[in-house]
């Protein structure tokens, strides 16, 4: 019976190991694990981190599972035989090693990922106006509400929260290959702004104002998903998103501005 149970305990880790190895070695795309192709540079760095940390984990999974399976397998005849179990209480060197090696790996990983984190979360993109370097102003004020998305575009004055804002519902169109900054606010409860292709997710907390940014390649069929429970209609709270050529974007926004309704915020 030990052989049977050994094989049972081997199946799951080995299957996971094989899938993870193929994902990490790019033999199969990340969409195997549900993630679509990223459309921005940080998305690609995050994917690299994703593969890296899954690769490390796959290694640990393989090593530990094989040892467990082998322990079961080797004792298959022991139960009926006369061999006694080894009388080992501990092994300081071994214990230090299996604390220090994962510790060092994780510490390295911790520092290694910081650049991606600061790029995506801390360093808001800047632009040069005249002699000055200033932060790129928000292009759109995103207002989340139960159960939909409002997009208030900065109008001719290039500022959000002014009278000439252009209001669109449940469709976000942004220019490609340009630094886009969004300001996120909620009208009622907590929502979360998730665009899988941008590898971007940000909760939107009532009473707070959040900024997210990206610089994306053109893409047509994107979707914004709410990823924080916001009530019974949570699953319906989705909007379309398109990343289009800057010229197309400008003419689209002009057209929308001409049929502009007054913005309805605050």
């Amino acid at each position: 019976m030990n052989r049977f149970w050994s094989i049972l305990f081997a199946i799951v880790p080995l299957a996971a190991f094989v899938v993870l190895s193929m994902v990490c070695l790019k033999l199969v795309p990340l969409s195997t694990m549900g993630l679509p192709q990223p459309i921005n540079a940080p998305g690609q760095s995050i994917d690299f981190l994703f593969r890296l940390v899954h690769g490390l984990c796959a290694g640990v999974l393989f090593f530990t599972s094989i040892t467990i399976v082998w322990s079961l397998w080797q004792s298959r005849s022991a139960a009926g035989g006369t061999r006694r179990a080894a009388y080992i209480k501990s092994n300081l060197l071994l214990e230090l090693a299996w604390t220090a090696i994962p510790g060092a790996l994780l510490l390295w990983l911790a520092f290694y990922q910081m650049e991606v984190w600061s790029d995506t979360r801390l360093n808001q993109p800047t632009q040069i106006i005249g002699q000055e370097t200033v932060a790129v102003p928000p292009l759109v004020l995103v207002k989340a509400r139960q159960y939909g998305w409002e997009f208030h575009y900065a109008g001719a004055d290039q500022q959000i929260k002014t009278a000439d804002d252009v209001y669109i519902e449940n469709l976000l169109v942004v220019p490609a290959n340009r630094d886009v900054v969004l300001e996120l606010e909620s009208r009622d409860v907590i929502h979360s702004f998730f665009v899988p292709e941008l590898r971007l997710k940000q909760d939107i907390v009532p009473g707070m104002s959040h900024r997210v940014w990206f610089n994306a390649n053109p893409a047509d069929q994107l979707e914004i998903l709410c990823t924080e429970l916001c009530g019974e209609g949570h699953y319906r709270m989705r909007a379309r998103m398109r990343v289009v050529a800057p010229a197309t974007f400008d003419s689209w926004l002009d057209a929308e501005a001409r049929k502009n309704q007054p913005a309805e915020f605050q």
């Binding site: 149970w5 040892t67 322990s71 079961l72 004792s75 299996w98 604390t99 994962p102």
Partner: peptide, 25 residues
């Protein structure tokens, strides 16, 4: 990440307990 270390120590110790044992399944 630090908390992964004592959790890992536990896993390795369980494996160490199984290793070379006279397992009764």
């Amino acid at each position: 990440m630090l908390i992964a270390l004592p959790s890992g120590v536990k896993v390795f110790n369980w494996i160490g307990t199984l290793w070379g044992g006279r397992l009764q399944l």
